[in-house]
Design a protein around this nucleic acid. Structure first.
Length: 557
RNA sequence: AGCCUCAUAGUGUAAUGGUAACACCACAGAUUUUGAUUCUGUUAUUCAAGGUUCGAGCCCUUGUGAGGCUACCA
């Protein structure tokens, strides 16, 4: 668990800034737009920004949580609340530093007026299409539009009219006057304000003009005295514009934008557009559907926040645009759960075993450790009687070569309990096993197999009379949902689509068989800690499994 | 096409100009009352070509490949 103390390039820049006294402290920010739920990709940014603040606590470093809510058409209060919940769940705390870009609307407006007075902004009355045409393209420069030659007075008046609601949406915008010939398209007189006659979740109807990201963001950062504004690579080309606003507006501080590569995970849908589509289209149960890579989905699935944080630390921060294998994430989940999760037994596709000589040893309870290595987790007592459920796949009428579990005349241990020997079985008309007959070997609880008895495996079991040992979650490669873009039957992130239906078929009878407290979900954490990953269609799943107790970590934080 | 950025095992990430390494994955053995865990071992890496240098993954040039940019989204 020793993490390399190496500094990534961002932390190096910050350390250097601190060392030369450029800043006395560090202030970062996590600035989501409240237009959806946070997902695993956001976790990287959250861990980076809050992590850096925590690492420099000795100089009073902080990380702000700021909602970048400058577009009333896309944003909702529900998202604000979910984001706060998810950041907290991940283990971070913004303290008093919760902000909304919408609270700075009048500051943005002041800056716009300032730019107009300086002759650095003007009102454009062309349509979006005309502006696009006049902006030129990647190889040819743009050409001046009529608005560019308006006087300061005219612009001031026009902008006041915009703000007063005297224009309809799309009739005009405020643009910065920078460089229509710049090879960087972002500098070709970008739009600062557009008209939107839409109520804002925070400011209501107070405004009908709303600032664009490029204009608002640097001002938000400066206003909050952010020292290092960390964002993803796609904003690289925006940095000159970011700096231009810092240079030309009345700002109280001079933040620096630094870009890093966003997280891209194999087999995982990370596009907000697609996630929205899945949720709104009813393809999944909601933003917290356990099949989704949203933080709330991962939470329901049983992913411990510690594992996600450790994963983020391990993948590092660079400018390299790669795709991280989801196996890296899964390792951290398994690694954490393996140490932290108490174990339970579960049977998903049950077949009954009748212990025919049960009355010869009327033991009613066996004591089972909650964790195979960590004795301090204690033991629990499980009732057992003459009938138990075992997994259907733990029995083979005709065992194949490396099969070590139950088969006619073979021995197997009921995990934590007795060694049993199969004495027979019954089938129904269709040829399916209906019941297995067995006998217990007296005195084998907590003891090795007697001389001459070959017992090479211990299987999960559940007492028929008293019900199951635990609430269960299924661990499998179910990161997945159907791809709305695929013609049909396409999966975006399943390696093994069959496993979904296979497991569904297994869970149904299990649900029917068990009454009290049994609930199965299509989660991937806890059922198989590792092996289900190797499922291939048509290949039998690995029999050994670990069931981690859900509540023990789902309730954290 | 112009501009910006990036390039190290299958994946991610390291390496003051001085022996290319760590983790994951994969595979093979040992232990195991979870075919898990644990332990041991194995395979495999600097995009290409030039240049500077005693010495280049690192510096320079060119090329190749990948990503980003022509929203009144963020």
């Amino acid at each position: 668990m020793s993490d390399a103390p190496k500094l990534d390039f961002i932390r190096e820049i910050i350390a250097a800034d601190l060392a030369v006294g450029k800043h006395a402290t560090v202030i970062t920010r996590f600035p989501p737009e409240p237009n959806g739920y946070l997902h695993i990709g956001h976790a990287k940014s959250i861990c980076l920004n809050f992590g850096i603040a925590a690492e420099h606590a000795e100089v009073g470093a902080k990380c702000h949580l700021r909602f970048d809510d400058t577009n009333p058409e896309k944003e909702e209060l529900e998202y604000v609340e979910s984001i706060k919940t998810d950041v907290k769940w991940l283990g971070f705390d913004w303290g008093e530093d919760l902000y909304f870009a919408s609270n700075y609307f009048s500051y943005f407006h002041d800056c716009a007026i300032h730019l107009i007075r300086e002759g650095k902004a003007y009102v454009e009355q062309e349509s979006a299409e005309e502006m696009r045409a006049h902006r030129g393209n990647l190889t040819s420069p743009g050409t001046p539009s009529p608005g560019r030659s308006l006087s300061v007075e005219e612009n001031l008046q026009l902008f006041a009219s915009m703000k007063a609601g005297e224009f309809k949406e799309g009739e005009c915008v405020l643009r910065a006057k920078i460089d229509l010939a710049s090879p960087n398209m972002n500098l070709r007189d970008p739009v600062l304000y557009r008209i939107m006659h839409a109520p804002h979740h925070n400011t209501g109807d107070a405004w009908c003009i709303y600032p664009m990201y490029d204009f608002a963001h640097p001002l938000e950062d400066a206003h909050e005295h952010i020292t290092h504004s960390l964002c993803t690579l796609e904003f690289e080309n925006h940095r000159p514009l970011y700096d231009w606003f810092i240079e030309n507006c009345p700002v109280p501080s001079r933040p620096r934008q630094i870009e890093f590569a966003r997280l891209s995970l194999s087999y995982t849908i990370m596009s907000k557009r697609k996630l929205l589509e899945l949720v709104q289209g009813g393809h999944v149960g909601g933003w917290d559907d356990p099949r989704l890579p949203t933080l709330s989905g991962l939470r329901r699935r049983g992913y411990p926040p510690e594992a996600i944080r450790h994963f983020c630390k391990r993948i590092g921060i660079t400018k390299f645009n790669g795709t991280t294998d989801v196996a890296l994430l899964e390792f951290d989940v398994r690694d954490f759960l393996n140490h932290a999760a108490p174990r339970r037994m579960a049977v998903l596709d049950p077949v009954k075993v009748v212990l025919e000589n049960w009355s010869t040893e009327p033991l009613a309870v066996v004591e089972v450790p909650n964790h195979p290595q960590q004795a301090e987790m204690g033991n629990r007592e499980i009732p057992i009687a003459a009938e138990v459920w075992i997994e259907r796949e733990d029995f083979m009428e005709v065992p194949e070569k490396k099969f070590h579990r139950l088969a006619p005349d073979r021995h197997v241990r009921l995990k934590g309990g007795h060694i049993i020997r199969c004495t027979g079985f019954e089938k129904d008309a269709a040829g399916a096993i209906t019941v297995i007959r067995a006998e217990i070997l007296p005195g084998t609880v907590g003891a090795d197999a007697p001389e001459g008895v070959a017992c090479k495996a211990a299987i999960h079991w559940v007492d028929v009379a008293t019900g199951i040992d635990a609430e269960v979650r299924i661990y499998d490669r179910l990161f997945t949902v159907e791809d709305p873009d695929a013609a049909e039957g396409g999966f975006l992130s399943v390696l093994n689509p069959e496993s979904l239906t296979t497991l569904a078929a297994k869970v149904e009878p299990a649900l029917a068989a068990a009454d009290a407290g049994f609930s199965c979900q299509f989660d991937r954490t806890g059922y198989f800690i590792a092996d289900a990953r190797d499922h291939q269609p048509g290949v039998k799943p690995v029999f050994n499994r670990t069931v981690a107790l859900r509540d023990s970590w789902a309730k954290r934080g």
